[in-house]
């Protein structure tokens, strides 16, 4: 395993999140009916940052939730062990709200498929929009992000890692080759 490239440092990550926040506010014309849902683990941290920058810009505290998709994975039968189930923590009704779904890396699209099913079991949102920090391609399902931090062409064997202070103790986005 070695680092092939560093895509973002902490400043770059910050700027990208600022831009995503502006795009979200622009597209939705403000914060009306907006809620943010981050996918564990790291999408929830990014969601928290987007919430804080919305608050700075608009003075509005948008509701935020955490989604755990473990129980909706499509590869349960193929894994060597049962993945750890964590709690979904969304303490508001998403029905008729505009949900901004946040994840760190968009790859095959299978996580997003699971997240959409998980959200639908919680209510009937007016819309769901997808925001990702990195889109690395290689989709296996017809999934497309509405807000993309950075498009990164990768090879299938490579891995994109998003490191965040809250989870990893450092801030960067890197590409790793085996």
């Amino acid at each position: 395993m070695k680092i092939k490239a560093e895509l973002m440092d902490s400043h770059g990550l910050n700027r990208t999140l600022q831009r995503l926040t502006h795009e979200i506010l622009e597209r939705n014309q403000g914060t009306g009916e907006l809620v943010i849902v981050g996918i564990r683990n790291r999408g929830d941290v990014l969601a928290g940052r987007i919430q804080r920058s919305i608050q700075k810009l608009e003075g509005v505290r948008v509701p935020i939730g955490i989604l755990d998709i473990t129980l909706y994975r499509d590869d349960f039968q193929r894994l060597a062990e049962s993945p750890v189930v964590q709690e979904t923590d969304i303490d508001f009704d998403i029905t008729d709200r505009k949900v901004i779904l946040v994840d760190d890396v968009l790859y095959t699209g299978r996580t997003i498929r699971a997240a959409l099913d998980a959200l639908m079991d919680l209510g009937r949102p007016a819309s769901i929009q997808l925001a990702v920090l990195v889109d690395r391609g290689h989709r296996e399902l017809p999934v497309k992000a509405d807000y993309v931090g950075k498009n990164v062409p990768t090879a299938q064997g490579e891995e994109v890692q998003v490191k965040l202070q809250e989870v990893d103790g450092e801030e960067k986005v890197i590409v790793i080759v085996p």
Partner: peptide
């Protein structure tokens, strides 16, 4: 539910949780 869930895993051959 927890017991059934935890016993149901481990039939597959793939290690770890993968990237996505």
């Amino acid at each position: 539910m927890s017991v059934l869930y935890l016993l149901a895993g481990g039939k597959g051959k793939f290690e770890g949780e993968g990237n996505e």
